[in-house]
């Protein structure tokens, strides 16, 4: 659906060139929610804006829906942008227009909708985002969450195939963030629209993204299935995002375990395995005793997962390890 090939982007600032993107290659599949996570200045927004050519790459190609759009200009460019909706951190609604007029605006610009069609579509969209009764208000009279819902309705007005979200929830409180993420996720399912979501919040990725790319210093340092990337982070940047969320300092924790006897292992379970009575079975089969040092059971997108740190004592610990591996549990030995 969206493909970046060997993308380079440099900005000229006061005669010096600043590299914003380096050797970026990426594919976003149709219908998926793709996350791009990275710290401030990593190049996330720049990458996102290449898709609708608000920015152009210094080198490399951008493909959308099988077409090489890198050199699009004029009407071709404007038509491409109409196929792509975008929402922003600061909503970017027109303060001089009512909610209704804001949502109608892209359709008016397109010039292909009649007045009646626009009116009906606006009602439909506002109902979908839960703002049917706010149509005549001005943006300044709305809360942040409501503004972002207007932004979403506006982005969907011309029935785009792609929705770009640039830090769409970063200015919202946790509860509102959750409801807006849910809305984006629902829309993705209902309409089959491809979503690219830029964020620096791990939680946003976990809730809605099928796949994720981690960016650092203008490069993609890690990418793949959200669950894979976050259950088994490889790059230090990914690590920092995962552990920032869990509020855990691994070294500190290791010190805490110093006086705990036995072998310390970290188990990662995914999918249905999460809910199986694995530990009970294990104790029965191998005579190993376990105590739980820390743990969490949660979801990544719709994949349930569990992560448990155990200490194993007594019985046949090596056999227990083999049993675990056999039942699709990822085992990491923290202390022999």
């Amino acid at each position: 659906m969206i493909e970046f090939q060997d993308i380079e982007k440099t900005y000229e600032v006061d005669g010096r060139s600043v590299s914003a993107l380096r050797e970026v290659g990426l594919r976003v599949e149709p219908g998926e929610v793709f996350g791009i996570i990275g710290h401030s200045g990593a190049g996330k927004s720049t990458l996102l804006r290449l898709i609708n050519l608000i920015e152009r790459p210094t080198a490399g190609r951008v493909r959308v829906d099988g077409r090489d759009v890198t050199d699009y200009t004029g009407w071709q460019l404007l038509n491409l942008r109409r196929e792509i909706g975008m929402i922003f951190q600061h909503f970017n609604l027109l303060s001089s227009k009512t909610v209704r007029a804001n949502v109608a605006f892209p359709m008016k610009l397109a010039g292909t909708y009649g007045a009646q069609a626009i009116r009906e579509r606006v009602e439909e969209l506002l109902a979908r985002v839960g703002l049917a009764d706010q149509a005549n208000k001005y943006p300044s009279q709305l809360s942040g969450g409501q503004k972002q819902r207007v932004g979403i309705a506006r982005a969907l007005a011309c029935k785009p195939k792609i929705l770009l979200c640039d830090e769409a929830t970063s200015a919202l409180d946790p509860q509102t963030t959750q409801s807006v993420l849910e809305l984006i996720s629902d829309i993705n399912l209902e309409l089959g629209i491809t979503v690219v979501l830029v964020t620096h919040e791990m939680d946003a990725i976990r809730r809605v993204c099928d796949r994720v790319a981690v960016m650092d210093g203008g490069e993609i340092v890690e990418s793949g299935d959200s669950a894979d990337v976050f259950l088994h982070p490889k790059h230090p940047t990914t690590h920092s995002f995962v552990f920032e969320r869990e509020h855990v300092d691994e070294d500190e924790r290791r010190e805490d375990f110093a006086h705990v006897p036995g072998r310390i292992v970290k188990l990662t379970l995914r999918g249905e395995a999460t809910y199986r009575p694995i530990l009970g079975d294990l104790a029965q089969q191998t005579g190993v005793d376990y105590s739980i040092l820390s743990g969490r059971v949660d979801h990544i997108k719709r994949t349930p997962y569990g992560q448990l740190t155990l200490s194993l004592v007594g019985g046949d610990v090596d056999q227990a390890m083999r049993e675990l591996e056999r039942s699709d549990v990822h085992v990491e030995v923290i202390r022999q």
């Binding site: 609708n52 608000i54 460019l77 404007l78 038509n79 491409l80 942008r81 109409r82 792509i84 975008m86 922003f88 600061h90 970017n92 609604l93 027109l94 303060s95 605006f105 892209p106 610009l109 397109a110 506006r154 011309c158 770009l164």
Partner: peptide
Amino acid sequence: GVIEATQAMGAS
């Protein structure tokens, strides 16, 4: 941001 949003809608 408003200009950018309008641009992103495909406005000339």
